[in-house]
């Protein structure tokens, strides 16, 4: 049983009477422990797909199963529960709460899983240490660099110990050096056995993963393992 299973998933937006098929029938399976990169040109539907995978949005049609939850029939509360416990999501723009400090930001998911205050604090601090920010625990996001912010966001994604971690261009707002550091954290997560799915424009990042899924016009155009077909992959991912 795959961790993620999509069958003919479509997402259609209607804008001013015009239908936009952001996803035009996606079939996809991801097994536990995989390290996946999703690539494709701008506007091809990568973010739309990620939002569906991250249970932030629901498909217009098609069958979706994530971590054993059938999402085609899930209620809003069920989706919240899946987001809270099974999934960690890292955004390109960090999406931290500006008025909370680092530890408090990391704690937020635990609040909604009903954990007691003390345990919450301990768990959050442990994860912040794991991403190397122990010196910045009481700082607010505005006092941190972009790379530090993204590390806080990763800590928040990991704090509830999710089975799968998604990143929608997590290095997109960072310089290449910091991007490499962040990518390193994702690689470590994969090595520790977690399932990791990243959207990226960067062929070098795609090359690090074990499976590249190329999206074009709302469909999976092709898939390959960059370790066995590196040159071709680089060409395609770089437009």
């Amino acid at each position: 049983m795959p961790l993620v299973h999509l069958q003919d998933v479509r997402k259609t937006y209607v804008l001013g009477g015009q239908e936009i098929h952001a996803l035009a029938g996606v079939d996809l399976s991801i097994e536990e422990g995989e390290f996946v990169a999703i690539i494709g040109p701008s506007g091809s539907g990568k973010s739309t797909l990620m939002h569906l995978l991250g249970c932030l949005d629901t498909p217009t049609s098609g069958k979706m199963e994530i971590c054993g939850h059938d999402l085609s029939s899930a209620s809003s509360d069920e989706l919240s529960g899946v987001r809270n416990r099974e999934i960690g999501f890292v955004f390109q723009s960090f999406n931290l709460l500006p008025r909370l400090n680092v530890v408090e930001n990391v704690e937020v998911p635990l609040i909604y899983s009903g954990m007691a205050a003390r345990e919450r604090r301990e768990r959050a601090e442990a994860v912040v240490r794991r991403v190397g920010l122990e010196a910045r625990m009481r700082n607010r996001p505005t006092q941190l660099s972009g790379g530090q912010c993204q590390r806080v966001a990763i800590a928040r994604a990991l704090v509830n110990n999710p089975r799968i971690v998604f990143g929608d261009e997590p290095t997109g707002n960072l310089d290449s050096h910091t991007g490499e550091l962040i990518l390193g954290i994702f690689a470590e997560l994969h090595q520790a056995g977690r399932t990791v799915v990243l959207v990226t424009h960067d062929p070098e990042i795609a090359a690090v993963t074990h499976r590249v899924i190329e999206i074009r016009d709302g469909r999976v155009r092709r898939e390959y393992d960059p370790r066995t077909a590196p040159p071709d992959a680089a060409k395609i991912a770089g437009h």
């Binding site: 991250g54 932030l56 809003s76 509360d77 919240s80 529960g81 987001r83 809270n84 416990r85 999501f89 999406n95 931290l96 709460l97 937020v108 998911p109 909604y112 899983s113 928040r156 509830n160």
Partner: peptide, 16 residues
């Protein structure tokens, strides 16, 4: 609005 979106994204239910 954004804060609410972030809270929803990490697991807050509508009723929270």
């Amino acid at each position: 609005v954004r804060e609410i979106g972030i809270r929803r994204a990490v697991g807050a239910r509508a009723r929270d």
